[in-house]
Design a protein around this nucleic acid. Structure first.
Lengths: 188, 188
DNA sequence: ATTATCATGTAAAAGGTTACATGATTTG
DNA sequence: CAAATCATGTAACCTTTTACATGATAAT
């Protein structure tokens, strides 16, 4: 699946694994993330499958850059994926909620501390989405050579997905606050 | 990580892999899911590690039941996990949002159709959380032998996590509706 | 008659994480 | 002077998914 994140970005512009990881961590990380290691291994696989090609750009004083470019086959694959309708809900894996589900097992004060810590973490995350992500996306993406018409359509969806991250954090924070309040009130 | 879902449920009561899968699909599926295959393999691993033990209950006309029970070591592991504070946000993997991020690449009408389909799917999901999950949890859990005091604490968190699922769906639906409306208005 | 439920698993492949290895340049 | 950034990757391991295999009973 990381496959399509990589093809998607390479479709805008040729770049290295290092560049791709940075882009991902600045733009899609709240709904799709990847480590550098994984980016490098998947890129290699995609090249073997003929969806991308690479060229080495020699550098001095640091490792040569391996710049990847999407092929016609890769572009078709990407478009096919985007056109295919999806009928299933995305399956979630949220370790903290799993913990919360079983928190009746531990004492109330420890549970409260866990919830309050998570509240802080999500407040920070929310701040990031509001204040930093928009600028980060704009900066990262300003180098892409897109026509004005195309750009408009892309910006619409980049911004829409960023907004979802923001709304998600707001919902999560509200839930944590309510749950903390309710837990404090709970019996003796 | 499925490990802890299994230990958590086995801590309430001894049961089979089949039972566990059903319980998971009825209660934790919106933040943690698993296939039957995975449940069986992880149970086997946990038994090798000494966190659970199993006994075979012979049956006629259908395969014998292998009933798993948590050990003292398993319980300590579970409690240790629950007591450990978590400082990272849960990492998300939401394929549909990844698609949405790149939807500027395909024509507007196809994108609209995708969003509208996902809206239907999430409306159904929301309905499930509101109408079916509470009863399903109660039914599944009514067989657990818990003291009234304990039960209260557990019910609090079961219900809290279910509410998060409900809130999540409401947020997601609102986002889809806004995004659909905005996309319809967009340019020509 | 067909589908769903109960009940177990194995084997192979795919996807993802963690630890290791290297090293110059730039910024604070 | 220390930390971050740029830039590549391999090896081992862990986790998860998909496909396969079996078969009786109960419900529609």
């Amino acid at each position: 699946m990381l496959k399509y994140a990589l093809l998607g970005f390479l479709n805008y512009q040729a770049m290295t694994g290092y560049d791709l990881e940075r882009l991902i961590s600045q733009s899609t990380t709240h709904f799709w993330h990847a480590t550098l290691t994984q980016v490098y291994t998947v890129l290699k696989r995609l090249e073997n499958e003929g969806l991308i090609t690479s060229q080495i750009e020699p550098q001095e004083g640091r490792p040569d850059r391996r710049v990847y470019e999407i092929t016609a086959v890769g572009e078709e694959d990407l478009l096919g994926w985007l056109r295919r309708p999806q009928t299933e809900v995305d399956a979630m894996k949220a370790p903290f909620i799993l913990r919360a589900f079983f928190m009746g097992l531990i004492d109330r004060d420890t549970a409260l501390t866990h919830l309050q810590l998570m509240l802080q973490v999500h407040q920070f995350q929310h701040h990031t989405f509001r204040r930093e992500t928009p600028a980060a996306i704009e900066a990262a993406v300003s180098t892409f050579a897109l026509e004005r018409r195309e750009l408009e359509a892309h910006v619409f969806f980049w911004d829409a997905t960023r907004k979802l991250g923001e709304k998600y954090e707001e919902m999560y924070i509200a839930w944590l606050e309510e749950t903390i309040a309710a837990l404090k009130k709970q019996n003796s």
